[in-house]
Design a binder for these strands. Sequence first.
RNA 1: GUCCCCAUCGUCUAGCCAGGCCCAGGACGUCAGGUUUUCAUCCUGAAAACAGGGGUUCAAAUCCCCUUGGGGACGCCA
Length: 533
Amino acid sequence: MTSRPVRVRFAPSPTGPLHVGGARTALYNFLYARATGGTFVLRIDDTDLARSTDESLQNILDGMRWLGLDWDEGPTRPGETESASRFGPYFQSLKFDRYREVVLDLRERGRAYPCFATAEEVEEGRQAMARETGVPMYDRRYRTLPRDEADARIAAGEPHVWRFATPLASDGGESRVVVHDAVKGDVEVDLKQIDDFVMLRNDGTPLYNLCSTVDDLDMEITDVVRGEEHFVNAVKQILLFRALEADVPRFAHLPLILGKDGKKLSKRVAQTNLLDYRDQGYPPEAIVNFLTLLGWSFDGEREIFSLDEAVRAFSIDKLGRSGSVFDEDKMIWMCGMYVRATPVDVLVDRVAPFLEDAGVLSKSAIAESRAFVENVVACHRERFDRYGEVPSKIAFLFADTVEYDAKALKNLRKSPETADWLLAFRGALEGVAVPPSWPDRPPEADALRLPEPVNDTANRGGGSSAFARPSELEAMARSLADRLGIGFGNLVAPLRAALTGAAGGAGLFDIVYLLGRERCVARIDAAIESLRS
RNA sequence: GUCCCCAUCGUCUAGCCAGGCCCAGGACGUCAGGUUUUCAUCCUGAAAACAGGGGUUCAAAUCCCCUUGGGGACGCCA
């Protein structure tokens, strides 16, 4: 087989938001194009004018860009037309004349005919066919209508659609079609199963199978990579390619992404709108990584890899044949892996919009206290997987008062002496240089990068900062516990409760350092107060 | 109902095409330990699968057939 350079397309219809299944289809097209040095085309299949919306188009383009799936040809920005190319336009709604032309051509070739059946007649025939053959389809009643009669009825303004005349064995035509599919292998389909499908609606607008085929032809698409639900369409399109005496592209029908219920992923069982993941702060790299693994495997061992690495390792014949369940737990785990691997400054950029939206920190506050915010995020990065989780995890640092959760309350009341211990700690605080509370922190307080390296003894306790670093605060607390004659945990648990309102969280002395003197003192006082009342 | 596809741990998968190296490897999740001031991270370990039945073969997760199970399609949607 002579192989032209690969040209693949992702062809969503802008009738709804980009679905995660669609995103994976786009991703595999992208990988295949990049892996083979081919071209990745984005085409907008907006033939259904009634259901297509600009909002959906925008959503699709945003989703593609968010994932980093850059296309070589296709629309640029909504409102703009498209990247200049001899293969455009990339909106099917701009090519209606072309499709109609093809239908007329098809009629000359004996493969298209007008059908005047009413909706009721079609339905009636459908039921009869279902009874007779088991296949509910149009009964082809207008297929043999003489041409002059058909033209007369058209001229008279009678409503009609244009149908494709599927080759029939009874007419001496071929009776089977073989789909050569990269994932399914060669699949033979009996044409008895194939309807005389509609190509042009009653209102003259074209339909999917026609447009898709014509565009794949016009755009010199070499490989059609799409979801398995399109498999039967491949047969219709092959018929169309042949009728047009054109080369048939290769096909690859991807197994579906399944929900926990084992059925095609739907919003009933999962979040299917790709951009919802963005809005909840899932790292896009993690989504891409995860989606890549749904039906393909890097090397059988490695789970975490970049899009570029996937491109280098990708091979279309390593695609799996069975559907895969969308496992949100694993995806969240993967998000966490990316969060922990992201440099702190980048991480803060990613997290910032979520902090702003939640009203925890304003954009200007983040900019002005950048080093402080980076330390806050760095101290919490092992405790969140998605950016959207951050505001609620760090809000306590900026609150005026804290509310104790059940476990914190328990820790606070564990011993009748906790109030005394807290008071002792409060007193000990007087003797150490705890940085002032935000926002009144001098820059040098946050020049120290947190969290401190655990095993870096050279860095711990050394240095000449004007402030006591967390490790020094910890040393202070340990000696205080010694003096009080209690275990370290007895001091630390209620202190954490008093300071954060929770039983878990970032390193306690990182928290003391970040919270600052005034807030620490106020919270300890508040805790003691509540213990006494 | 008709046609098509699929079938390895609960889940994602490697192995299957070119049978032996597989009493089946990795990952998520689960459970148990360890590290830690807590939670988390991290580390170690455990339980966990070739759907069933027939063949072919010296040898089958790997090839063939049947059964069962699951999924998809059957639009003047894409």
